[in-house]
Simulated scan of single mutants.
Amino acid sequence: MDDNHTRSTPYRTHRTAGGTTVVTLRGELDVMTAPSLTARLDALASGPLPDLVLDLRPVSFIDCAGLGVLCRVRNRVKARNGRLRLVTNSSQFLRILRHTELTGVFDIGSRLPEEAAGTPVADSVSASAD
């Protein structure tokens, strides 16, 4: 990685559609972006019955710290009797989940859920600078 490479905060905003909070993650989910992303997702999952959708389709890289963030938010959502869904069409990410035996842990789809799909995608969370 280039020494001049700078990373942005892994979130800017999120959007809510029909009671579902949709967060589009972009770039890299790694040890550098995990702390701020964890803080933002913890806040979004803090209420009763959180319904979160994490759109991972624009994510270009995820390491064990990124997987840790996903597991943490899943556990927080589940503890509050909520729902977490991941959206990805990355065969590489699905392979990582298989190898780490996390495939059955997450609710995974290749498209946004119907209740969130009709809302314009205006807000996103950037995991790293483009």
Rank of each mutant, 00 (worst) to 15 (best):
Gln92Ala: 14
Leu97Val: 06
Thr38Phe: 01
Tyr11Ala: 09
Gly109Trp: 04
Asp107Val: 05
Arg85Val: 10
Ser110Gln: 11
Leu70Arg: 04
Gly104Pro: 01
Val22His: 03
Thr103Met: 12
Ile96Ser: 02
Ala127Cys: 12
Thr103Ala: 14
Gly82Ala: 09
Thr119Lys: 03
Gly82Ser: 10
Arg26Gly: 11
Gly19Cys: 08
Arg12Leu: 13
Ala43Asn: 11
Arg80Tyr: 07
Ala129Glu: 11
Pro58Met: 05
Leu54Glu: 01
Gly47Glu: 10
Gly104Thr: 07
Leu84Glu: 07
Leu56Ala: 15
Ala122Met: 07
Met32Ile: 12
Pro48His: 09
Glu101Gln: 12
Ala45Met: 11
Val77Gly: 06
Arg7Trp: 15
Pro58Cys: 05
Arg85Leu: 10
Leu84Thr: 06
Ala127Gln: 05
Thr6Glu: 10
Met1Asp: 13
Arg57Ser: 02
Asn81Lys: 14
Ala45Ser: 13
Gly66Trp: 05
Ser128Ala: 12
Leu41Cys: 08
Arg74Gln: 11
Gly66Thr: 00
Ala45Asn: 09
Phe106Cys: 06
Pro58Trp: 01
Val105Trp: 00
Arg40Cys: 11
Ala79Gln: 11
Cys71Val: 15
Ala17Glu: 09
Gly19Phe: 06
Gly47Tyr: 04
Arg72Trp: 02
Tyr11Trp: 11
Leu112Ala: 03
Asp30Tyr: 06
Leu67Gly: 04
Ala39His: 13
Arg40Lys: 11
Arg57Cys: 02
Ser8Cys: 15
Arg76Glu: 11
Arg57Val: 01
Phe93Lys: 04
Ala129Tyr: 13
Asp63Phe: 04
Phe61His: 09
Thr100Asn: 03
Ala43Pro: 08
Leu84Pro: 04
Phe106Tyr: 03
Pro58Asp: 04
Thr100Trp: 03
Arg40Val: 07
Phe61Gln: 07
Arg15Gln: 15
Arg111Val: 14
Gly82Leu: 07
Ala129His: 13
Gly18Ala: 14
Gly118Pro: 00
Asp51Ala: 09
Met1Ser: 14
Thr33Ile: 08
Glu28Val: 05
Thr21Ser: 00
Glu28His: 10
